[in-house]
Protein backbone atom coordinates (compact mmCIF):
# COMPACT_ATOMS: atom_id res chain seq x y z
CA UNK A 1 0.00 0.00 0.00
CA UNK A 2 2.70 2.41 0.99
CA UNK A 3 4.42 2.00 -2.34
CA UNK A 4 1.27 2.65 -4.26
CA UNK A 5 0.81 5.82 -2.37
CA UNK A 6 4.35 7.01 -3.07
CA UNK A 7 3.85 6.49 -6.79
CA UNK A 8 0.55 8.30 -6.69
CA UNK A 9 2.07 11.17 -4.87
CA UNK A 10 4.96 11.59 -7.30
CA UNK A 11 2.76 11.50 -10.33
CA UNK A 12 0.34 13.91 -8.73
CA UNK A 13 3.04 16.43 -7.91
CA UNK A 14 4.66 16.01 -11.29
CA UNK A 15 1.32 16.54 -13.01
CA UNK A 16 0.68 19.68 -11.04
CA UNK A 17 4.12 21.07 -11.86
CA UNK A 18 3.72 20.28 -15.55
CA UNK A 19 0.33 21.95 -15.54
CA UNK A 20 1.76 25.08 -13.96
CA UNK A 21 4.62 25.16 -16.43
CA UNK A 22 2.18 24.90 -19.32
CA UNK A 23 -0.02 27.66 -17.92
CA UNK A 24 2.93 29.98 -17.40
CA UNK A 25 4.23 29.19 -20.87
CA UNK A 26 0.84 30.04 -22.32
CA UNK A 27 0.67 33.31 -20.39
CA UNK A 28 4.19 34.26 -21.41
CA UNK A 29 3.31 33.58 -25.04
CA UNK A 30 0.30 35.91 -24.72
CA UNK A 31 2.47 38.49 -22.96
CA UNK A 32 4.88 38.47 -25.88
CA UNK A 33 2.04 38.80 -28.39
CA UNK A 34 0.61 41.73 -26.45
CA UNK A 35 3.95 43.50 -26.13
CA UNK A 36 5.33 42.96 -29.64
CA UNK A 37 3.45 45.85 -31.29
CA UNK A 38 4.68 48.22 -28.59
CA UNK A 39 8.19 46.90 -28.94
CA UNK A 40 8.10 47.18 -32.71
CA UNK A 41 6.72 50.68 -32.52
CA UNK A 42 9.55 51.77 -30.24
CA UNK A 43 12.21 49.85 -32.21
CA UNK A 44 11.11 51.24 -35.56
CA UNK A 45 11.05 54.77 -34.17
CA UNK A 46 14.77 54.55 -33.36
CA UNK A 47 15.82 52.94 -36.63
CA UNK A 48 17.20 54.82 -39.59
CA UNK A 49 15.38 54.43 -42.90
CA UNK A 50 18.13 52.06 -44.02
CA UNK A 51 17.71 49.89 -40.97
CA UNK A 52 13.94 49.86 -41.37
CA UNK A 53 14.18 48.62 -44.93
CA UNK A 54 16.70 45.95 -44.08
CA UNK A 55 15.67 42.38 -44.94
CA UNK A 56 15.48 40.36 -42.77
CA UNK A 57 14.38 43.00 -40.26
CA UNK A 58 16.61 43.89 -37.34
CA UNK A 59 15.00 42.40 -34.28
CA UNK A 60 17.17 44.15 -31.69
CA UNK A 61 19.08 47.35 -31.54
CA UNK A 62 21.63 48.29 -28.92
CA UNK A 63 20.72 51.58 -27.20
CA UNK A 64 24.02 52.97 -28.49
CA UNK A 65 22.76 52.55 -32.06
CA UNK A 66 19.44 54.22 -31.44
CA UNK A 67 18.67 56.92 -33.94
CA UNK A 68 16.79 59.78 -32.32
CA UNK A 69 16.76 61.82 -35.51
CA UNK A 70 13.22 60.65 -36.24
CA UNK A 71 12.04 62.40 -33.09
CA UNK A 72 14.02 65.54 -33.88
CA UNK A 73 12.53 65.74 -37.35
CA UNK A 74 9.00 65.60 -35.95
CA UNK A 75 9.56 68.94 -34.30
CA UNK A 76 11.15 70.68 -37.25
CA UNK A 77 9.02 73.24 -39.02
CA UNK A 78 8.01 72.18 -42.52
CA UNK A 79 7.80 74.51 -45.49
CA UNK A 80 5.08 72.83 -47.52
CA UNK A 81 2.00 70.67 -47.27
CA UNK A 82 -1.01 71.06 -45.00
CA UNK A 83 1.24 71.79 -42.04
CA UNK A 84 3.20 74.56 -43.64
CA UNK A 85 4.76 76.76 -40.98
CA UNK A 86 4.19 74.12 -38.31
CA UNK A 87 6.34 71.27 -37.07
CA UNK A 88 6.07 68.08 -39.12
CA UNK A 89 4.18 66.54 -36.25
CA UNK A 90 2.78 69.39 -34.12
CA UNK A 91 2.78 67.19 -31.04
CA UNK A 92 2.53 70.02 -28.51
CA UNK A 93 -0.32 71.70 -30.37
CA UNK A 94 -2.21 68.43 -30.53
CA UNK A 95 -1.46 67.69 -26.91
CA UNK A 96 -2.68 71.10 -25.86
CA UNK A 97 -5.90 70.63 -27.87
CA UNK A 98 -6.39 67.13 -26.57
CA UNK A 99 -5.84 68.08 -22.95
CA UNK A 100 -8.12 71.11 -23.28
CA UNK A 101 -10.90 69.11 -24.91
CA UNK A 102 -10.41 66.31 -22.42
CA UNK A 103 -10.60 68.61 -19.39
CA UNK A 104 -13.66 70.53 -20.61
CA UNK A 105 -15.54 67.39 -21.60
CA UNK A 106 -14.69 65.67 -18.34
CA UNK A 107 -15.73 68.60 -16.17
CA UNK A 108 -19.01 68.84 -18.06
CA UNK A 109 -19.66 65.12 -17.98
CA UNK A 110 -18.86 64.87 -14.30
CA UNK A 111 -21.26 67.66 -13.39
CA UNK A 112 -24.20 66.40 -15.49
CA UNK A 113 -23.51 62.87 -14.28
CA UNK A 114 -23.44 63.74 -10.59
CA UNK A 115 -26.63 65.80 -10.78
CA UNK A 116 -28.57 63.19 -12.75
CA UNK A 117 -27.27 60.26 -10.71
CA UNK A 118 -28.36 62.06 -7.57
CA UNK A 119 -31.85 62.65 -8.92
CA UNK A 120 -32.26 58.99 -9.85
CA UNK A 121 -30.70 57.65 -6.68
CA UNK A 122 -32.25 59.90 -4.05
CA UNK A 123 -35.24 61.84 -5.31
CA UNK A 124 -38.66 60.44 -6.03
CA UNK A 125 -40.57 61.97 -8.85
CA UNK A 126 -43.19 61.02 -11.36
CA UNK A 127 -41.81 59.32 -14.43
CA UNK A 128 -38.39 58.63 -12.94
CA UNK A 129 -38.47 54.98 -13.95
CA UNK A 130 -39.59 55.74 -17.47
CA UNK A 131 -36.92 58.38 -18.01
CA UNK A 132 -34.29 56.08 -16.53
CA UNK A 133 -35.21 53.21 -18.84
CA UNK A 134 -35.21 55.48 -21.88
CA UNK A 135 -31.76 56.79 -20.97
CA UNK A 136 -30.39 53.28 -20.47
CA UNK A 137 -31.86 52.23 -23.83
CA UNK A 138 -29.83 54.90 -25.62
CA UNK A 139 -26.67 53.01 -24.67
CA UNK A 140 -27.65 50.37 -27.22
CA UNK A 141 -27.80 52.86 -30.11
CA UNK A 142 -24.71 53.13 -32.28
CA UNK A 143 -23.29 56.63 -31.93
CA UNK A 144 -22.80 56.87 -35.69
CA UNK A 145 -26.49 57.66 -36.02
CA UNK A 146 -26.17 60.83 -33.97
CA UNK A 147 -23.16 62.15 -35.82
CA UNK A 148 -25.04 62.95 -39.03
CA UNK A 149 -27.41 65.36 -37.33
CA UNK A 150 -24.91 66.60 -34.76
CA UNK A 151 -22.70 67.74 -37.60
CA UNK A 152 -25.59 69.81 -38.96
CA UNK A 153 -26.42 71.11 -35.49
CA UNK A 154 -22.84 72.23 -34.96
CA UNK A 155 -22.94 73.85 -38.38
CA UNK A 156 -26.15 75.72 -37.58
CA UNK A 157 -24.70 76.83 -34.24
CA UNK A 158 -21.94 78.45 -36.25
CA UNK A 159 -19.17 76.27 -34.89
CA UNK A 160 -18.34 74.72 -38.23
CA UNK A 161 -17.49 77.35 -40.76
CA UNK A 162 -15.02 76.13 -43.33
CA UNK A 163 -13.50 79.57 -43.82
CA UNK A 164 -13.88 81.34 -40.51
CA UNK A 165 -13.86 78.66 -37.83
CA UNK A 166 -12.11 79.97 -34.73
CA UNK A 167 -10.21 77.84 -32.25
CA UNK A 168 -12.97 78.12 -29.69
CA UNK A 169 -15.62 77.18 -32.26
CA UNK A 170 -13.73 73.96 -32.76
CA UNK A 171 -13.29 73.37 -29.04
CA UNK A 172 -17.00 73.93 -28.39
CA UNK A 173 -17.92 71.57 -31.21
CA UNK A 174 -15.61 68.92 -29.81
CA UNK A 175 -16.84 69.20 -26.21
CA UNK A 176 -20.47 70.26 -25.85
CA UNK A 177 -22.03 67.21 -27.58
CA UNK A 178 -20.03 64.86 -25.36
CA UNK A 179 -20.85 66.23 -21.94
CA UNK A 180 -23.21 63.45 -20.96
CA UNK A 181 -22.69 59.78 -20.32
CA UNK A 182 -25.54 57.46 -19.52
CA UNK A 183 -23.17 54.73 -18.53
CA UNK A 184 -21.27 56.79 -15.96
CA UNK A 185 -24.59 58.11 -14.65
CA UNK A 186 -25.74 54.53 -14.17
CA UNK A 187 -22.47 53.59 -12.51
CA UNK A 188 -22.53 56.56 -10.11
CA UNK A 189 -26.20 56.03 -9.29
CA UNK A 190 -25.35 52.53 -8.07
CA UNK A 191 -22.69 54.00 -5.77
CA UNK A 192 -25.05 56.71 -4.53
CA UNK A 193 -27.71 54.13 -3.77
CA UNK A 194 -25.34 52.26 -1.49
CA UNK A 195 -24.95 55.30 0.76
CA UNK A 196 -27.26 54.60 3.70
CA UNK A 197 -30.42 56.65 4.12
CA UNK A 198 -29.49 57.41 7.72
CA UNK A 199 -26.83 59.74 6.45
CA UNK A 200 -29.48 61.66 4.54
CA UNK A 201 -31.79 61.91 7.54
CA UNK A 202 -28.94 62.92 9.81
CA UNK A 203 -28.00 65.68 7.41
CA UNK A 204 -31.64 66.80 7.23
CA UNK A 205 -31.77 67.02 10.99
CA UNK A 206 -28.61 69.10 10.87
CA UNK A 207 -30.42 71.45 8.53
CA UNK A 208 -28.63 70.84 5.23
CA UNK A 209 -30.51 71.34 1.99
CA UNK A 210 -30.59 68.61 -0.65
CA UNK A 211 -28.07 70.47 -2.71
CA UNK A 212 -25.64 70.88 0.17
CA UNK A 213 -26.14 67.27 1.07
CA UNK A 214 -25.17 66.23 -2.44
CA UNK A 215 -21.94 68.22 -2.51
CA UNK A 216 -20.90 67.92 1.11
CA UNK A 217 -21.76 64.28 1.76
CA UNK A 218 -22.69 62.23 -1.30
CA UNK A 219 -19.88 63.46 -3.53
CA UNK A 220 -17.09 63.02 -0.97
CA UNK A 221 -18.37 59.57 0.00
CA UNK A 222 -18.62 58.51 -3.65
CA UNK A 223 -15.25 60.05 -4.51
CA UNK A 224 -13.52 56.80 -5.54
CA UNK A 225 -16.21 56.16 -8.15
CA UNK A 226 -16.12 59.77 -9.34
CA UNK A 227 -12.34 59.63 -9.68
CA UNK A 228 -12.68 56.47 -11.77
CA UNK A 229 -15.24 58.20 -13.97
CA UNK A 230 -12.98 61.23 -14.39
CA UNK A 231 -9.99 59.10 -15.39
CA UNK A 232 -11.88 56.88 -17.82
CA UNK A 233 -13.66 59.84 -19.37
CA UNK A 234 -10.53 61.91 -19.85
CA UNK A 235 -8.89 59.05 -21.70
CA UNK A 236 -11.66 59.29 -24.29
CA UNK A 237 -10.26 62.39 -25.97
CA UNK A 238 -6.99 60.57 -26.68
CA UNK A 239 -8.83 58.08 -28.83
CA UNK A 240 -11.34 60.41 -30.47
CA UNK A 241 -10.79 60.29 -34.19
CA UNK A 242 -13.89 60.61 -36.31
CA UNK A 243 -15.59 63.62 -34.83
CA UNK A 244 -12.57 65.95 -34.47
CA UNK A 245 -11.52 64.97 -37.97
CA UNK A 246 -14.95 65.96 -39.20
CA UNK A 247 -15.48 69.29 -37.54
CA UNK A 248 -11.96 70.73 -37.23
CA UNK A 249 -11.37 72.75 -40.38
CA UNK A 250 -7.71 73.37 -39.72
CA UNK A 251 -4.93 71.01 -38.92
CA UNK A 252 -3.91 72.92 -35.81
CA UNK A 253 -7.35 72.43 -34.25
CA UNK A 254 -7.16 68.66 -34.35
CA UNK A 255 -6.45 66.09 -31.66
CA UNK A 256 -3.55 63.65 -31.38
CA UNK A 257 -5.21 60.70 -33.12
CA UNK A 258 -5.93 62.78 -36.21
CA UNK A 259 -2.37 63.90 -36.58
CA UNK A 260 -0.99 60.40 -36.80
CA UNK A 261 -2.32 58.95 -40.00
CA UNK A 262 -1.32 60.16 -43.41
CA UNK A 263 1.13 62.83 -42.33
CA UNK A 264 4.23 60.80 -43.06
CA UNK A 265 3.45 59.63 -46.54
CA UNK A 266 5.13 61.61 -49.27
CA UNK A 267 2.30 62.45 -51.63
CA UNK A 268 4.54 62.49 -54.69
CA UNK A 269 6.28 59.15 -54.13
CA UNK A 270 3.65 57.43 -51.96
CA UNK A 271 6.41 56.31 -49.64
CA UNK A 272 5.79 56.38 -45.93
CA UNK A 273 8.49 57.36 -43.49
CA UNK A 274 7.87 54.64 -40.94
CA UNK A 275 10.55 55.89 -38.58
CA UNK A 276 8.86 59.27 -38.14
CA UNK A 277 5.44 57.72 -38.12
CA UNK A 278 6.39 55.34 -35.31
CA UNK A 279 8.15 58.13 -33.42
CA UNK A 280 4.91 60.09 -33.43
CA UNK A 281 3.02 56.97 -32.37
CA UNK A 282 5.39 56.58 -29.44
CA UNK A 283 4.85 60.21 -28.45
CA UNK A 284 1.09 59.66 -28.41
CA UNK A 285 1.25 56.32 -26.63
CA UNK A 286 3.61 57.24 -23.80
CA UNK A 287 1.42 59.83 -22.00
CA UNK A 288 -1.47 57.37 -21.96
CA UNK A 289 0.72 54.63 -20.57
CA UNK A 290 2.02 56.95 -17.86
CA UNK A 291 -1.56 57.87 -16.97
CA UNK A 292 -2.42 54.19 -16.88
CA UNK A 293 0.41 53.21 -14.58
CA UNK A 294 -0.36 56.06 -12.20
CA UNK A 295 -4.07 55.23 -11.98
CA UNK A 296 -3.85 51.52 -12.73
CA UNK A 297 -6.13 50.42 -9.89
CA UNK A 298 -8.92 52.91 -10.54
CA UNK A 299 -8.87 52.29 -14.27
CA UNK A 300 -8.94 48.51 -14.05
CA UNK A 301 -11.57 48.53 -11.34
CA UNK A 302 -13.77 50.91 -13.31
CA UNK A 303 -13.47 48.94 -16.52
CA UNK A 304 -14.10 45.57 -14.90
CA UNK A 305 -17.24 46.95 -13.25
CA UNK A 306 -18.46 48.20 -16.60
CA UNK A 307 -18.33 44.65 -17.88
CA UNK A 308 -19.98 43.06 -14.89
CA UNK A 309 -22.94 45.38 -14.83
CA UNK A 310 -24.96 43.34 -17.32
Amino acid sequence: MAEVYVKNELSYKAKKTIFHILVYAFLILITISVLIPFYWMLLTSVKTQVMIEQVPPLLFLKPADWEINNYKLLFEVVQSGPRRGQPLFPFFTYMKNTILVSVITTVGTTITTILAAYAFARLRFKGSNLVFVILIATMMIPGEIFILTNFLTVYRLGWYDVFNQTYWDAVLAMTIPFMTSVFYMFYLRQTFKQIPNELYFAAKVDGTTDFQYLWKIMVPVAMPTIVTIIILNSMGAWNAYIWPNMIATRDEYRLVSNGLRGAFTDSSTGRTDFGQQMASAVLVTVPLLILFFVFRKQIMRGVSRSGIKG
Binding site: M1, V4, Y5, E9
Partner: peptide, 12 residues
Protein backbone atom coordinates in the same frame (compact mmCIF):
# COMPACT_ATOMS: atom_id res chain seq x y z
CA UNK B 1 -7.21 2.21 7.19
CA UNK B 2 -3.59 1.33 6.41
CA UNK B 3 -3.16 3.70 3.53
CA UNK B 4 -1.50 7.02 4.11
CA UNK B 5 -3.39 9.79 2.32
CA UNK B 6 -1.60 12.78 3.82
CA UNK B 7 -0.26 14.06 0.50
CA UNK B 8 -3.00 12.73 -1.70
CA UNK B 9 -5.16 15.25 -3.58
CA UNK B 10 -8.82 15.25 -2.52
CA UNK B 11 -10.12 13.60 -5.67
CA UNK B 12 -7.94 10.54 -5.04
Amino acid sequence: ADEEVSEMPPEK
